[in-house]
Design a protein around this nucleic acid. Structure first.
Lengths: 143, 143
DNA sequence: AACCAACTGAAATTGAGTTTCAAAAACTAG
DNA sequence: CTAGTTTTTGAAACTCAATTTCAGTTGGTT
């Protein structure tokens, strides 16, 4: 999946415009595998593009989510984070509560059990959230 | 586990006082299996106890969390919800995105796989969050 | 080139959560 | 029981991320 293309399609579909700011934000966002919050991405962009406003960053991240090239994540720190989707490959997260490091994991057997649980309750699943919080290896070393 | 007792212990331990408001909030909270947000519990309490303030409800729910008789949950609707803990029995949630219904589920095999995943990344888990979002049986019937 | 709808960025607004503060209530010691 | 001390309460103020507003700007279409 070419994410820039998907984004442009989305703009066209909705009669939106292809602006300089949106391009810059898209590139910066996709070039990183970091899980940015709006504020963090805004700060990064400000270095090279001081004229781009916070509201524009916010609105553009919402557009990314709308067209499926990003997902909103919430790790309970009071900030919504946005993760660029590199593929259709689903994964979940380990979140270090000390250093904030985020590790992605894939475990098909868990996915399968989720389907079983849903069936047990006649529930049709649209999405899920699964995060493990704790200490990454560095942060669990004795200091 | 007697939750009222645990709460009283907690108050004593921290040199806090046993007030009328705290007792009322505790009873109302435990008498329901509902997953209240602060606002919702406040509205319920207001019917019989119009003098109890929002801030008191908020602070009391925080106390419940501190002493372990409640947990904070966040289902992505912008409101923190509080779940009374009836036992030490861990469970996760199915959340209906249409009617808001919350179903609790237990699946030890998922818990086991979580431990395996954590081990794979040398990660020591402190807590986790696992929610499936979709339609409950009523909301997936053709209307 | 002209037009118009969409966009931008600064500032204002929203809303959940939290804190403040003066009056009230709960405990403690006498 | 009473006085004294500390915590609590509730209303209002504040915080902070998220969202909206709006006047001036830009994109892209004719």
């Amino acid at each position: 999946m070419n994410r820039a293309l998907v984004f442009n399609q989305h703009l066209r579909n909705k009669g939106l415009k292809n602006t300089r700011q949106r391009l810059i934000i898209l590139e910066t966002f996709l070039d990183s595998s970091f899980h940015y919050s709006t504020e963090e991405l805004y700060q990064v962009l400000r270095k090279d593009h001081p004229r781009i406003g916070y509201a524009t960053v916010h609105r553009t991240l919402k557009l990314f989510t709308e067209c499926g090239i990003a997902v909103e994540l919430n790790f309970g720190d009071g900030q919504t984070r946005f993760e660029p989707l590199y593929s259709d490959h689903h994964h979940d997260h380990l979140v270090c509560t000390r250093c904030g490091k985020i590790i992605e994991f894939v475990e098909p057997r868990i996915e399968q059990l989720q389907r079983e649980v849903a069936e047990r309750y006649d529930f049709s699943v649209e999405s899920h959230r699964h995060e493990l919080y704790g200490r990454c290896i560095k942060c669990s070393q004795p200091s």
